[in-house]
Design a protein around this nucleic acid. Structure first.
Lengths: 199, 199
DNA sequence: ATCCTTCTAGAAAATCATTCTATTTCCGCG
DNA sequence: CGCGGAAATAGAATGATTTTCTAGAAGGAT
């Protein structure tokens, strides 16, 4: 934001972009400091100056993409009037995102994603709180309106995101899923699982 | 099986047990070859002889526990007559397993689990095929009987296991889920999502 | 008994992450 | 201008960890 640090910002970008490129080509085992410095042309010193460690770099990369994904999901939610259409919007946004950003999607689903927060715990919470809060509020709102069954929030989230994440991961890993079909079928099925209506 | 390799088997056990112990105490970053050799009393040479690499060791550990989990799930399925009770059995078996084997559960959900198969891809497939096939057959059977909606198998699996895995991971990571409540509520909800009945 | 394979052992080599010190860049301020 | 200092860059040195390598012990088959 401040007009300062022109250099710094640029190298941070270079490093993050290079890291994703390296990950895409060499996978997680290939994601080393040397590979990233080579791919970015940035020196080792700069990498450590900006990120502190290799995990710090990967965490920052994860945060960037997680932020984008959550941002798109929140936007999708804001344009949905009913809970039912909200679920559809969430599902489709998530699947589209993964399709359009395959490597980032792999990184988000895979390996280091749960280690995330170890090096940037505080920043992560603050940064994502702004995204997670509206989603929780959205769920609470529709629970109150009697559309969504009155279950604990974490269970509702598991029911909604679990199948979507599972399908996305499966597409990324094995490719034995048709994403279009998933986007068509899953929302309706997920909706049935959280709807307040009796069966 | 063969009466050979008395020594070998024992050290393999020692190493796998020690690795889980180390992981439980020191987390993933602490899971190093040195830590495992120290904790097991087995030499570095033996470790590499049996597993080839640290990832090979971790993969073997994952396979062992994944095999146990799938085994319990298949057993649970065999004792269920209807598709509905099958879903309940699967869910509860999974959640109980994670509760009873917390460290193994963390390992299965976390970090290295998706790297799995990189070092032991072939063995993994062969070893788990025996477990996965009956589960797929079970699903197919109940689809034919008209109980489960006629969706592609991967989508059904995502719908069934997604929420369960999500809840388990959440319990392991944040602890903000009541496992008993999840075991009570999820099966019914999941069932609604895959049932062939109209809504 | 001796040969062969498997297994054990740990030192040596290679790889990778991190620290450290020196140097450059660039902004604010006299 | 040009000086001072903070931020950034650079890469050599260090430290930790994985992997390889060579040597030897254990145990069974012929």
């Amino acid at each position: 934001m401040s007009p300062k640090q022109q250099r710094g910002e640029a190298t941070v970008e270079l490093l993050l972009d290079a890291a994703l490129r390296v990950y895409a080509e060499a996978g997680e085992p290939g994601l080393t400091v040397n590979a990233v410095t080579r791919a970015s042309g940035v020196s080792l010193g700069s990498l450590y100056h900006h990120f502190g460690s290799i995990d710090g770099l990967v965490d920052a990369l994860l945060m960037r993409w997680l932020g984008r994904l959550l941002g798109e999901m929140v936007t999708a939610l804001e344009h949905s009037r009913t809970a039912r259409t909200g679920v559809r919007a969430l599902t489709r946004t998530y699947l589209s995102f993964v399709r359009e950003h395959r490597e980032a999607g792999m990184l988000l689903h895979s390996s280091r994603a749960d280690r995330l927060g170890m090096t940037q715990a505080a920043q992560l919470r603050d940064a994502q709180e702004a995204r997670l809060t509206p989603m929780a509020a959205w769920v609470a709102h529709h629970v109150e309106k009697g559309e969504i069954a009155p279950l604990p929030l974490p269970l509702i989230e598991s029911l909604v995101l679990g199948p979507v994440v599972g399908a996305a991961r499966r597409w990324l890993t094995f490719g034995d899923i048709d994403l279009d079909e998933a986007a068509r079928v899953l929302p309706e099925r997920i909706w049935r699982s959280i709807s307040a209506e009796a069966v």
